[in-house]
Design a protein around this nucleic acid. Structure first.
Lengths: 139, 139, 139, 139
DNA sequence: GTGGTCTAGACCACG
DNA sequence: GTGGTCTAGACCACG
């Protein structure tokens, strides 16, 4: 763990410039999810604002605002001259619990949305099984 | 078909005022989904702009903008002094196909997102089956 | 092509505030005609919403609405913080065809209107030839 | 001359309910043109508001407003119990002059518009001659 | 009552 | 500076 500097190419963070969701909000959302799910660990170093801006081809100020919001939220810690790191305070057990919660809430939400649109549970099940088994076949 | 007036309480259209997705876009998106999926049929009457504004506690102009965009997109037809109705032109067969496509793309997207966050296909399957069987039990 | 900034004084876009045709619709119509006819090319930059509003002495929101509709129609592309440009996608061949169609439909319509008002084809021809030869003399 | 009651079916007056030009304004415009051009003569009786509304399938009040505006403009005279007639005051000579003026201004305007859109006078002439000779052939 | 347009002004996001 | 959204309120057209 420790000091991996993930260099955020379009692989780690995809942003959609045409989305009505502000770019800075997309970044904040994404980083928080990666932390909650355990893909970014406390102490991991984040790439510099300038490098993120360059890789994602967006403005410095936009990234700066995202980092600022993440700092406010306690997700990251910025220190002058040291760089930016994922904050401590989220211990492994919490992460595991959050990881599970996140999975369930995501699945629950999508199922609820589909039911509300009038799909039957059988239709949903069938679609799900077809698609997940496609994925398994690829492994 | 015909003249069912869907009364859009916060039930039919939920909007999230804090979302970064513009309110008018949320309304447009929602109505288009309901039409695509067959929950709103050609000829169905939509509630008046003023009543939607009141129910959702948003400004007349915001709803008006949503209706205007839906009109431009061909989803609805408005008539001075008369009201607003779902436009013709989407035949039943297309709806059935879209309905299926929409289901699959929704499920695919959520699965892809979860895999990308590092969940295994087994974890996803397990969560899905647990939740969908809860739903079936309620029937 | 490229980046010509058309500065829309009252020269390029004339709007008639007293017309019963909405101002925003006049702007939409005008820009679409200029594109269809080839006077505005893909990539050309449009003047900013604020500058159009100022030149035409109308409200920012009215121009904004016109640009929004043009964007939805695929005629232009707007980008946050960057500006507005004529969209790609209309190839030269289509423009030439549209150009010709537009000319013919305009002439046909005016002739039909005049005939319906009781002018004879000889009267119309005579008037047309007199006026067009005035124009040619000026060249 | 005198008392022809032209019963305004869609033949005499075409209105476009989807136009952004108000229906009442379309009626006013049309009647004034017919008078200016000599197709409606002083003393000619106009159909009743009720009958126009019925024939054009529009609201009584809309026609009423058009008649009111025409009255204000001096184009028609409404007298209780007598009906509505084209007003006097436009003598034959004026009509002939207006008729000619109207023709020329219509043709001039369309030519100017087309020139401004970048059509050459040769293109315009060619299109005009092709179309007008089509018309003559039909006679 | 139903839809539509416009202005004025506040505030946001991006560069 | 450039685009975008929202509210509040006035006023119009149609039925």
């Amino acid at each position: 763990m420790g000091d991996r500097v993930t260099d955020w190419g379009p692989d780690i963070i995809q942003i959609d410039k045409d989305s009505s969701i502000p770019i800075y909000a997309q970044i904040v959302e994404r980083v928080q999810t990666l932390v909650q799910v355990g893909n970014l660990k406390p102490g991991d170093r984040l790439p510099s604002i300038r490098s993120v801006a360059e890789h994602l081809r967006i403005d410095y100020n936009t990234v700066s605002r995202a980092y600022h919001d993440l700092d406010m939220a306690g997700t990251i810690r910025t220190a002058r001259g040291v760089g930016t790191h994922i904050a401590n305070g989220v211990d492994e057990e919490v992460i595991q619990r959050t990881r599970q919660t996140k999975l369930e809430s995501t699945v629950s939400t999508v199922i609820a949305d589909l039911l509300e649109l009038g799909y039957s549970d059988d239709e949903i099940s069938a679609a799900f099984e077809r698609i997940i088994s496609d994925v398994e076949r690829k492994d």
